[in-house]
Structure formats: C-alpha cells, structure tokens
Design a protein around this nucleic acid. Structure first.
Lengths: 196, 196
DNA sequence: ATAAGTCACATACGGTACGTATGTCAATAC
DNA sequence: GTATTGACATACGTACCGTATGTGACTTAT
C-alpha cells in the first residue's frame, strides 16, 4: 500500500530538519543554502516553505530538537545526583560539556540568539533554562540558596555555564581547559548558597 | 584649500561606521543593506569595500568602536571604587546596565558572536574581557580569590553579567528586573572569594 | 608650474539565494 | 468512480553581495 499522507509528511519534516542540522552546523545559518539543504534531503524548497514557512522557521525547528535533546540529557544527569544542589552543579557541568559539540555551539548558542532573538522568548521555550529554573526554585524553597529571584539565578547559572562552554570550545586545547571552566563554574555557583 | 586625502578618508570611514552602527542596531547585521547604509552616509558601496574589505569587516569595525566605548566606561567606574573587589563588582553591574542599550545588545552580544565568532578571538580583542581578566589576576595575586584559572574566572564573570543583561533587556519591565539581576550577579561573584 | 602617477571612490556586472505564485499528481472523501 | 484536497515541485521576480573596471582629484617629481 502507498504511504499515508501524514506519514510521509512526518518523514519529510524529519529529513529536512536532519539536513538543516548538518548544514547549519557546518556552514552557519546565513551560509547554508536552502537549495542544497533540500536537495540533500531528496526534496525541493517547496517542501521546506510548505512545512516551515521560511528559513527562520526551519532554524526554530532545528533549535527545538537540539534543545530537547539537551534537556533530556540534563534531566538524566540530574536524576543521578544525591541532592538538589549537587544536581544543579552537575547540570551546569553537563551543559558545559554539551556545548563542546559544534552543532550545539553554532546552532543553539551563536546563530539561534542572533536570528531568533533572546532564548528566553523562543517558541521552543528553551527547555534547558526551564529545567534549571525549576531546580533553583526547589532549592530556594528548601532555604539552601540566598533569597534571590529564581529566574535571575537560573539565568545567571546557565549563562555562566554556556559562556564557559563557548570559551572551552574556542580554545586550542579544550581538554585541558574544560576542568578549569568547570571548577570556576562550581566556585561561582557556590556564591548562591545561603550560608558559607 | 581642498581637503587632504587622508583627512577625507578618515571622515568617510567614520561616516560609514556611524551609518552602519545605526543600521545594524535597527535591522540587524543580515537585514542591513549595504546600499542603504552607504547612501545614508552619502557614499556608495565602493567606499565601503575599499575601506573594510567586506560586510564582516565593517561589522568588526563597528564592534570595536562600541567595545572600546564600553571598556572606557568600565574603566571609569572601576577607578571610582575603594578596592579591587568592589571594582570588579561595579564593573559587572556596569556591563549589565550597558547591555540595556539596544545597540550594544544587538551588535555586540547577538550579531557579533554569530558573525565574527567567539568574542575572545576578535581582532578588536574584546577590551571589556581583557579589563576584567586583569582585575581578576590582581585579586588572585592578593589572595582574595580562590585559586582558579584567571581567564576562566574572568570569562564566567563577564559571561554571567552579559547574560543577565540580555535577560533584563528582553524583559517587559527592565527597571524592576535590573536590581534582581545585579543582586544575583553579585551573589554569584562572591562564590569566587577565597573564604568568607 | 606642469605633467605623470596614485588612489579613494563610483559605476557596472555577474552570480547567488530567498520568497512567492502557480502547477501537478497522489491520497483522501463522498 | 469521481471530485477535492493538499503536499510538494517548478518557475519567476527581486534583492543583495562581491568584483572588476573606470574616473577624477590629490600628490609627487621634474
């Protein structure tokens, strides 16, 4: 029997997103050609504009996919920690390591904010940030942290982690720089603790 | 007497940078048209390519100008503080406030990294980062901070500050959010202190 | 002072890529 | 079985970047 319509559509969407992910990571958003993109997926620009509206829409879909994957990994890592505080630290370290992936770096950290605007207002909602904010709120309720604004603390923690990651990734020797970045990150995070 | 050649060239460069600054801030790097840019400056694209090589070169020049201005302001603010530590905190708070300027935000924080790559490797050298790193190194030498990598600490401090700034700027009520951001920033920064 | 030369900038051109408008054919609905 | 929907292909117009060439004003040398 011939493929159902919605079935092939899902497949085509997935193929386009996969091709876009590769092209955006390798050439950046501006440098990626929609014609090449779609050709590699065995389709044309027609499919792309029908499914995603425009080039930005495609980027948003790609960002959402990567962001969800990152949040999933972070959730797993946090689940393995003994307490909330250790979970938050581990989550931050995980973000730093994840940002070593050129795909994450280029698409989510560089082109994403530039093209789609501030991450906190993305349609994909920025799952990563939501996760850390929830963790911060729990810690605040437990009195583990100083009485700060939850969103502010979450933004700063993830911001510091991701910024450190950019630095590590751009470095000549990521493997030697990574532990320094994680150490500095954990030191700064301790500044949020209520008592010293 | 007719204008000397180098004199008019300097003027034209300045006019182009000024026009680019406005256009990049309003429409973003990708959305800014070189034709409109140069026309507003009373010139053509010929002048632009002769002076800056390409569109990225123009952005680099604009970024350098803004970055230098920011570093100058930060230097002034740091100079008014009683000790190095207070200076570092004040500097961070100053970065947060400066990033409320849409020009800074759009050009330096969003398009800059996306187009020119990691800020730490910009030709303009990122004066701001250099400044904070020097401050951190002095504090490390004085034993005020935990024994961390200077560059790592500096990157995290400025990263946290700038990320907080992006959040404040994107917020609906920047004036109410700003103090929360600064408070969280200073709390985190205290995590770098040797012993409390 | 005049003539040759330099160079900053203008003009003209080619190529590429995006977004839209229209066409088409298979899958669904009746 | 026919009609219709809609997912995707094709064709087109437009905008813009970067380059190659031209030109006129300022400089330099004789």
């Amino acid at each position: 029997m011939a493929r159902s319509r919605i079935e092939t559509m899902e497949e085509n969407r997935a193929k386009l997103i996969a091709a876009a992910r590769k092209a955006f990571a390798e050439k950046g958003f501006a440098g990626a050609s929609m014609d090449e993109l779609t050709a590699e997926a065995g389709l044309t620009r027609g499919a792309l504009y029908h499914n995603f509206g425009d080039k930005k829409g495609l980027l948003a879909a790609v960002v959402k996919q990567i962001d969800d994957e990152m949040a999933g990994r972070a959730r797993d890592i946090a689940a393995g920690s003994v307490d909330e505080w250790q979970a938050l630290l581990a989550e931050g370290a995980a973000y730093i390591e994840m940002a070593l992936d050129p795909e994450v770096q280029r698409i989510v950290l560089l082109d994403g904010p530039a093209v789609l605007g501030d991450p906190s207002q993305w349609p994909s909602q920025n799952s990563c940030l939501v996760l850390t904010q929830q963790a911060v709120e729990r810690l605040l309720a437990q009195g583990v942290l100083k009485p700060l604004d939850a969103e502010a603390a979450a933004r700063l923690v993830s911001g510091a982690a991701l910024n450190a990651a950019l630095w590590v990734a751009a470095s000549d020797e990521p493997q030697t720089v990574l532990p320094k970045a994680i150490a500095a990150f954990q030191a700064m995070a301790e500044g949020l603790l209520a008592k010293s």
